[in-house]
Structure formats: C-alpha cells, structure tokens
C-alpha cells in the first residue's frame, strides 16, 4: 500500500475506555475494540496526517517497534477498518482536523 490519509468514517462512533478504544459502526451496530497501537492510529486518523507520518512520529515514538513492520501492520489495520466501514482512506488529505477531532 502506498502512503495514504485516513479519517474516521462518518458512520463511526468511538470512545476510549481505560486505555481501550471502543468503536461502533452505525451501519450495522457492530462493536469493535482496538489494542494500544491500533487505538493510537485511530486517534490520529484526522484526514490530514499521512499514515506514514502517524506510524513514524507517533506509533514508533511511543512503542518500541520496527518502522517498516509497524507500517505493514498499520496497513493491515487500515484495510480491516475500511472493510468494516469505520475508516475512509484517500491518496490526498481529506480535510483539516477540527478542534473537536484533535481532542477525540
């Protein structure tokens, strides 16, 4: 996968509960939970920061992981979340994050 920009899908809802990210899709009311690394990627999915930048500047800064392996895992995660209608992905920035998005 080439580098890309990711944003939370308009039908998704989420909340962090004791370090665990809970995500629900309004399409089919399916509930998902994400681990620490996936939670960080979800929180960073503002549509304006590239996946590569998220992995390099946030994931690798916080977790002791190899950047290329982390990017590969991030690609798999993004692919899964797109498949479930929870993330949208684009080659170009989707939009500037709003203050509320920066807080979420």
């Amino acid at each position: 996968m080439k580098d890309c920009y990711i944003a939370k899908h308009p039908m998704a809802a989420s909340r962090e509960l004791d370090g665990e990210m809970i995500i629900m899709s309004a399409v089919n009311s399916t509930l998902f939970t994400l681990n620490d690394v996936a939670s960080l990627i979800w929180k960073s999915a503002d549509g304006a920061t590239s996946l590569k930048e998220i992995v390099e500047s946030r994931v690798c800064a916080e977790f002791d992981v190899d950047p290329s392996l982390a990017f590969s895992d991030a690609e798999t995660l993004v692919s899964d979340l797109v498949k479930h209608g929870l993330l949208v992905v684009a080659e170009h920035p989707l939009h500037e994050p709003s203050p509320a998005e920066r807080n979420s």
Binding site: K8, A13, S14, R15, A26, N103
Partner: peptide, 10 residues
C-alpha cells in the same frame, strides 16, 4: 453535528 464530531454513538 457537534455530538457526532465528538464521536458519540447517537
């Protein structure tokens, strides 16, 4: 709109 921006399941 604001509730959804704050990621509530509404």
């Amino acid at each position: 709109k604001y509730a959804r921006q704050r990621q509530f399941c509404v």
